[in-house]
Nucleic acid binder design. Structure first.
Lengths: 110, 110
DNA sequence: ACAAATGGTAAGCGATGACTTACGGTAAGT
DNA sequence: ACTTACCGTAAGTCATCGCTTACCATTTGT
């Protein structure tokens, strides 16, 4: 399933703390690579590699502007993860309700 | 911030594909370790270690039942990630709207 | 045309992590 | 009491990943 691969890529992309830091830098709007790296404890190539991972995961969009490349958060990529978690949330609540209901009826698992 | 650490733990826990598989097995309701491991390509200790990570992240709850231990999805842990993504979603949309608006006004970045 | 700036990529290194086998410990069956 | 079932933990191995330094391409400024 192509959709599950997208979820996997998005999840692993967001798992790294440095990449979440980059995402936080972009919350205010698009930024070029140098501006991001200047406020971070890692080198610029490291930031570049992280931006690649985030872009491949669909979390960032890139718009070349002359000499620089502006990176911005892509709402669609974030939404994919949101839908996954919403589904997980629904199932968790349903299972929880069913478990407590079964417990009230005195049924143990079989 | 303790809250950000919780997000980090939850995110790294969900980043592993095997752990997401385990989560999927638990969507229907609580299961003991052996039942999970029997339907998975990895060994039972591996599953046990993954369950530990998921529990520490607050994504699973454990209820010892006699000889076995029943693992279930914890809605609260899922909700923490949902809130994080909702905030990211809001900021992304706001930044996107502002960027297009600035572009309409002809302002380039400074 | 030359120099400076911006940024992606390759190679190599160190650390983290996922898995296995082996072991111990507790609860249930006979 | 003994055996079996269920499960967590320790030790060790192998792959993956994040980082750095070097290098190269492209674009802007003079």
């Amino acid at each position: 399933m192509d959709h599950k691969d997208a979820i996997a890529a998005t999840m692993t992309a967001l798992a790294d703390p440095t990449r979440r830091d980059i995402i936080d830098r972009l919350r205010g709007g698009p930024l070029p690579v140098g501006a991001i790296a200047k406020t971070m404890p890692v080198s610029r190539p490291a930031v570049s590699q992280h931006l690649r991972v985030l872009s491949d995961a669909g979390l960032l969009s890139v718009t070349p502007s002359g000499n620089r490349r502006l990176y911005a958060i892509a709402p669609d990529g974030v939404d994919a993860l949101r839908q996954y978690l919403d589904g997980l949330w629904d199932d968790a609540l349903a299972a929880f309700a069913r478990a407590t209901q079964d417990q009230a009826k005195g049924k143990q698992d079989e």
